[in-house]
Amino acid sequence: DDWEIHFNNITIRLHGVSEEQIEELKELIKNGAHEEELRKWAEEVNR
């Protein structure tokens, strides 16, 4: 699925990401992940 997530003036566009991966991302954000951590997560997902 395609997703677009907005938070802290950042837009993250995701393509072909599962519901499970979105839940992981929500947890990262909820736990106060920094932009660098989110980038690493996105790189892993996009492999």
Rank of each mutant, 00 (worst) to 15 (best):
N46C: 14
H6T: 14
E44M: 11
I22M: 09
L38Y: 03
E36T: 08
W41H: 01
L14Y: 01
W3I: 11
E36N: 11
H6P: 04
E37F: 13
G32Y: 02
H15E: 05
E44D: 08
I5Y: 09
H15C: 09
N9G: 14
V17G: 02
D1P: 10
E35I: 14
H6Q: 10
S18P: 04
N8C: 12
N46V: 12
E20W: 14
H6D: 04
N8P: 06
T11D: 03
E37H: 06
K30V: 05
E37A: 11
G16H: 14
T11E: 03
F7K: 01
Q21L: 12
S18N: 07
V45K: 08
V17W: 12
W41E: 00
I22E: 01
E23T: 11
E19S: 11
L14P: 01
N31F: 07
N46H: 08
E23P: 00
L14E: 00
R47P: 11
R39W: 13
H34Y: 05
R47G: 14
N46P: 03
T11N: 06
E27W: 15
L14C: 07
I5V: 07
N46A: 14
G16I: 10
A33I: 10
V17H: 02
E37R: 06
K26C: 13
V45I: 12
E20F: 10
N31I: 05
L14S: 02
H34N: 15
S18L: 04
F7N: 01
L28R: 02
D2P: 12
E24H: 10
E36G: 06
H34F: 05
G16N: 14
I5M: 08
W41A: 03
K26G: 03
I10M: 12
A42I: 15
K30W: 07
I29Y: 05
I12P: 02
I22Q: 03
R47T: 13
E19G: 08
W41I: 02
K40P: 00
R13Y: 13
H15D: 05
I5S: 05
E4A: 07
N8G: 14
G16Y: 14
E43R: 06
R13N: 08
G32V: 01
A33Q: 01
R13T: 05
E19F: 14
W41K: 03
R39T: 06
E43T: 07
H34L: 12
E23D: 12
N31P: 00
E4Q: 08
K30H: 06
N31Y: 08
T11K: 09
E37P: 01
E20N: 09
L25G: 01
W41D: 00
K26M: 14
E24Y: 11
E27Y: 13
K30R: 14
G16R: 15
I12A: 05
E36W: 14
Q21M: 08
I10H: 07
N9Q: 08
E35S: 06
W41L: 02
L14F: 04
E27N: 13
G16C: 14
H34V: 10
N9A: 11
D2H: 14
I29K: 01
I5E: 02
N46L: 15
I29A: 02
A42V: 13
K40C: 03
V45R: 06
F7H: 03
W41N: 00
V45H: 12
E35L: 12
W41Y: 03
E43K: 06
L25S: 00
E35M: 07
K30L: 09
L25H: 00
W41P: 00
R13L: 07
N46M: 15
N46Q: 15
N9D: 07
L25M: 04
R13M: 07
R39A: 08
R39L: 14
W3H: 05
E35A: 09
K26A: 07
E37S: 08
G32M: 03
E24N: 06
V45E: 02
W41T: 01
R47W: 14
R13K: 08
E27T: 15
K40F: 05
N8E: 08
K40G: 03
H15S: 10
N9L: 13
V17S: 01
H34W: 04
S18T: 12
K26V: 10
H15M: 08
E19V: 13
I12Q: 05
E24D: 04
G32D: 03
D2G: 12
E27F: 15
E36H: 07
E4R: 11
N31Q: 10
N31K: 10
K30M: 11
R39N: 05
E23F: 13
N8V: 07
L38P: 00
G32W: 04
T11R: 06
S18H: 05
G32E: 02
I5P: 02
L25V: 04
L38G: 00
H6V: 13
G16V: 06
E37C: 05
E23G: 08
I22V: 07
G32R: 03
N46G: 05
E24F: 11
I22L: 10
R39Q: 10
V45M: 09
K30Q: 07
R13I: 09
R47V: 14
N9K: 07
K40H: 07
V45Y: 14
N9M: 15
E20A: 13
L25F: 13
W3L: 08
G16S: 11
K40I: 06
K30S: 07
K26Y: 15
V17D: 00
E27R: 15
I22H: 02
E24W: 08
A33D: 01
L14T: 02
S18V: 03
K40W: 04
N8Y: 06
W41F: 05
E20H: 10
W3A: 03
E36V: 06
E43C: 15
N8R: 13
I5Q: 04
E19D: 09
N8A: 11
K30I: 06
Q21D: 07
T11I: 13
L38H: 00
W3D: 02
E43M: 07
G16A: 08
N8T: 07
Q21S: 06
H15V: 11
E35V: 10
I22Y: 06
A42T: 04
I12K: 04
K30P: 00
I10L: 13
I5A: 04
E4I: 14
V45A: 15
V17N: 01
K26H: 08
L38S: 00
E44R: 14
R13C: 09
K40M: 07
I29W: 07
R47S: 14
L28H: 01
K26I: 11
N9P: 02
L28I: 05
E19Q: 13
K40E: 05
L14Q: 01
E23N: 12
H15Y: 15
R39I: 13
V17P: 13
I29Q: 01
K26L: 14
L25N: 00
E20Y: 11
L25I: 06
Q21R: 08
E4T: 13
L38D: 00
N9T: 10
E37G: 02
A33N: 02
V17C: 05
E20P: 04
D2C: 15
